[in-house]
Amino acid sequence: MASKRKIATCSLAGCFGCHMSLLDIDERILELLELVEFDRSPINDIKVIRGMVDIGLIEGGVCNAESVHVLQHFREHCRVLVSVGECAVTGGIPSMRNHHSLKACLEESYIRGIGVENAHVPDDPELPLLLDKVYPLHEVVRVDYHVPGCPPSADALWYVLSALIAGRDPRLPTALLRFD
């Protein structure tokens, strides 16, 4: 048997719904595991990609310094990088905060919000700083393919993955194309 393809996945400013959708491929996951090996992924809790992987799947938008670092790490270690889901593709629901200044968001959460005690904006150096806005992935690194949807359906994800593994064009047919 040919060597398995390596896959890495992660979620940035997302809800893990895209990962849930990936698990929704049901019994096809057995087929998938015959073909691929998971490197860094929340599914196996591996934190860092070792060496190069063939396919990187990222859900969620870019919201802070850490998401930039993780995204850049993926770009450096993935031969093909796929933006998965509305948040990754457009900024999505988290980018609704872009309607407000960062100051307003933080004050609402940590200063003026209901039930806030010891009101101050968290400034621990351990915490990644927030970007002024939530951005889609392709504004930060080069992205090879996009799979829109909230989340993309299991069928759409299966279509893209199986196409990439088989070396086919992974762009979705109209029937699987959804933004919601």
Partner: peptide
């Protein structure tokens, strides 16, 4: 707008968002 994007096979917004 969404349906036309589907019909044209649009998978991403390509340009930077103006927000």
């Amino acid at each position: 707008l969404q349906a036309t994007a589907y019909a044209l096979g649009l998978q991403d917004n390509h340009f930077p968002q103006f927000f």
